[in-house]
Design a protein around this nucleic acid. Sequence first.
RNA 1: UCCUCGGUAGCUCAAUGGUAGAGCAUGCGGCUGUUAACCGCAGGGUUGUAGGUUCGAGUCCUACCCGGGGAGCCA
Length: 504
Amino acid sequence: MLFFRMPFTYIEDLAQHEGETITLKGWLYNKRSSKNIHFIIVRDGTGLCQCVVHQDEVDEASWDVAEEIAQEGALAVTGTVKKDERQVGGYELQATGVELISASEDYPITPKEHGVEFLMDRRHLWLRSRRQWAAMRLRNRIIMAIHEFYQSRGFIQMDAPVLTGNAVEGTTTLFDIDYFGEPAFLTQSGQLYAEAMAMAHGKVYTFGPTFRAEKSKTRRHLTEFWMIEPEMAFYDLEMNMDLAEDFIVDVVQTVLDECEEELEVLERDLEPLQRVQKPFPRISYSDAVELLRSDETAEMMDAREASLHEEEEALKQERKDNQKEYGQAKKWRKRQIDAREIEINQRLNEIEEELRNLPQWKESARTFEWGNDFGGSDETILTWHFDRPIIVHRYPAAVKAFYMKRDPEDDKLALGMDVLAPEGYGEIVGGGQRADDLGFLKDQIEKHDLPEEAFEWYLDLRRFGTVPHSGFGLGLERTVAWLGGLEHVRETIPFPRLLGRLSP
RNA sequence: UCCUCGGUAGCUCAAUGGUAGAGCAUGCGGCUGUUAACCGCAGGGUUGUAGGUUCGAGUCCUACCCGGGGAGCCA
């Protein structure tokens, strides 16, 4: 088996080998054929490359391999690297030899459209597809950007435990497990531990998996997701917001600078990302409530409704025109019309759904009462007023966790802050300044019906040199979805865990 | 748990209550550079399940199962 010993080249390095004869190892992504020529698109994990196989330029065995290999068959192709602007990646390989490494038959994911359930059942194979490849590389780059940001600012990365004996906030549903006969939970946040670690190191961040047993079926929820939680001693709410802002701007800039290809594959509109610059609008909860209830918001909603109706009419007209044309159309045109019809129908369904929702959204915004927490629609509407992420701060204490510090200027308010991403991606950051007074915390634990014994170690942090401190959590998958312009967080993690989905 | 939309060929989708179709995938044939290649032919169906209405049900009704999106909750 000669090919196991042959040195090989990665597709992403082809630019350095122009004119040379090299070997690629990978899988068949797609193939186009004529009588005496095969165009073989090879995928090797670093990119795609078209290999041109002429019958009279390769030996018979190579020709047979090119002729017979099916989608996702593994192969080695040797040939000369040639620059060709028309190709994906800009290079193609003039093949001199093709060798089969292993065959593949009836690969289920064809280069056409598939439904979500079908793809999710085959997530282990779906990861090979181009969009998923781009999404995972984007995730990787974002993770590295996050580490670079904190490391360059002197933060220490420390891990919070995944198994815990008590619920952090007492509000969310946790996964419970049996820990040698003791009840235990999978962590829903590393924050309390991060506070302890910040008192040891000053500035720390955790980066790990988080679990929520909530039965949320939306494009923004997973039951297992990754969260980055910086926690800083001697930081107040303002410093916390400054950090979150710097952090997000930095990550977005890195992605824009270094993920050009990934964003292109994902067909991400770059303009909204380029607008992510300091400063982010900072709006207090109370001002946000006023904005929600304002005439300005009502008018904006009306305008949106009108434009949706317009789009709906235009699409229906296009569908009608296409149907008229269909009878006399040539075959290729008929196909085009069929494909477009599916697109039109999907978009019409979306519009229909949004039009169904809008009146409720409008009503919810118009009649929003101070003291309630924002719903998903309220957050979305707020972000429509701005062209970049916004920070909402100083929420009613009643809707926030027990460990939030109160606003010294208004005891009804907690010094919490959320960062809301634009384009409907919602809350990507939640955090705030932590309560640092022992008596107040004890009081809160009691009022929230939490077991004080479980929090004794946490209260120790207030007994031995308590200081003002702050932190926040950033949802990795929501961030990847936002930056990649992805519909759903399930495409931002290799093997998503959702309600009713535990495999593959 | 609730609201809402859906389940038809391997996949994506069509089908005013009246003979279940198309594209892709697969197989065979054709084509000297293709870009989701193209052209021709072929095979492929218990319309999610169980009942009901009807001369007749993919289509209407009831219950259940599965999935999408949303509410609550949150990152």
